[in-house]
Nucleic acid binder design. Structure first.
Lengths: 245, 245
DNA sequence: AAGTGGTCTAGACCACCGT
DNA sequence: CGGTGGTCTAGACCACTTT
């Protein structure tokens, strides 16, 4: 059973989305809301706090809560699944495994994936597409314990993240991502169908489960002009999502 | 006067940093903390909530609060000031204005900066340096009302953001940033001292004040291999900061 | 069973905003 | 001035973890 404050946040969120409270308008006061929802003021404030985190409302001492944005959707985790992100924007994500091999881990891989000596890793190279455009080259190294799981996936699996969750309950609890720009190598260029030395946006990631166990790390290279990353920063929070140019 | 919960969060934060509570260790229970700090349990929980947002601690129902990370520092806003970010990491940021001119706004600029017809804009091109390395080329377009303010700044002003705040009280309330990769143009290459077509990390930003008034927008291009952006994503929040490669 | 964090209540006082 | 949000208190019950 969800807690009251979550239900109230969802309800307010829905009412904003339906236009009952337009952007720039004031919400009813906390006291009024606590009366209409039949809960204590603190519970209403907790719900409003959730909405503020999402950027839906703001507040100023002495004045009412104001609707800031109508935009919905779970920001968190959008970085984690290329396919889910694409589908939520009405695009058609695809994938194609270029190569897949199990080999002994290098020293660096053992460190990053916290593997014991002699552990193997699974290296997978995938091309990710949107419609018929190749937009990203993904090189992933999976920890030893993930090998049998990944190998049950088909070569055209559109969403690895979603399938891992649905079939195995594996969830990425957190990930560290580093973004920079690199020139396409010969291999990058050939697989992505761009000229050698073209600028690519590189995202290196290391993902972990809830018990801090490394799941995989990888190197994703996006073709310039196809996808950009967007960050909304504000004084107390920020969120990141992918954008199509 | 700061609120209790902020003071408590800062104190706990400092105690974690000083090693009193190592990573992986448990904090005293909420009841114990409320007794030692002499406040109600709710106030302690609020302080712990702040620390959780920063990724310093986690909690599970039925078990103690656990220290997750020692890393400190204000994540939010670090994207906004190149100079402050650099100094906080012990580096020596510098700036040099390449050109500065007031001209009539284009249609696109009028839209982005919400200017009336006939409004002028100030275009500034700056090279940003770390020590003696040129690392970024910054092209900024300021809204009309910012022109007299910016023009009081010297050409070697190391931190525009900080100066605007200290001398004029101008604060960027939020900004939208878009990251992608581009090839260096001839001008980029010459000003940054890199080869033409080198990959550059481009960050386009549009910043606003608290009343949603556009302040400026810009195009920052980072030399590959000097600076990367780092994003830590987790299930309920994420934060972004710059990293030196 | 005992202890922990998660949620909620019903008050209270204050700083701040608007009229 | 009255109303608003920001903070804080002192309880309470529950779900969950640990012992």
């Amino acid at each position: 059973m969800p807690a009251y404050y979550r239900e109230i946040a969802e309800d307010l969120s829905a009412r904003i989305l339906q236009g009952e409270f337009p952007i720039g308008s004031a919400l009813p006061s906390e006291n009024r809301l606590s009366a209409t929802y039949g809960v204590a003021r603190g519970t209403v404030r907790r719900a409003l706090g959730l909405l503020r985190e999402r950027g839906a409302v703001t507040s100023r001492q002495g004045s009412s809560w104001i609707v800031e944005a109508v935009r919905q959707g779970q920001d968190f985790g959008e970085l984690r699944s290329f396919a889910q992100w694409a589908r939520s924007r009405g695009m058609d994500p695809g994938g194609q495994v270029v190569s897949s091999s199990v080999t002994a881990a290098t020293v660096a891989e053992r460190r990053k994936l916290q593997l014991a000596d002699g552990g193997d890793v699974l290296r997978v190279v995938r091309i990710r597409t949107l419609g018929d455009r190749r937009v990203m080259l993904e090189r992933t190294v999976y920890a030893t314990w993930m090998i049998p799981i990944i190998q049950t996936l088909g070569p055209h699996e559109p969403s690895v993240v979603q399938t891992l969750f649905e079939r195995f309950g594996i969830v990425t609890a957190y990930a560290d991502n580093t973004l920079d720009a690199v020139a396409a190598t010969g291999e990058d260029a050939q697989l992505l169908g761009v000229r050698r030395s073209s600028p690519l946006l590189r995202l290196r990631r290391e993902s972990h489960d809830a018990r801090h166990r490394p799941i995989e790390y990888g190197d994703d290279r996006y073709v310039s002009g196809t996808i950009a990353f967007h960050v909304h920063t504000r004084q107390s929070s920020n969120s990141m999502r992918r954008l199509l140019n």
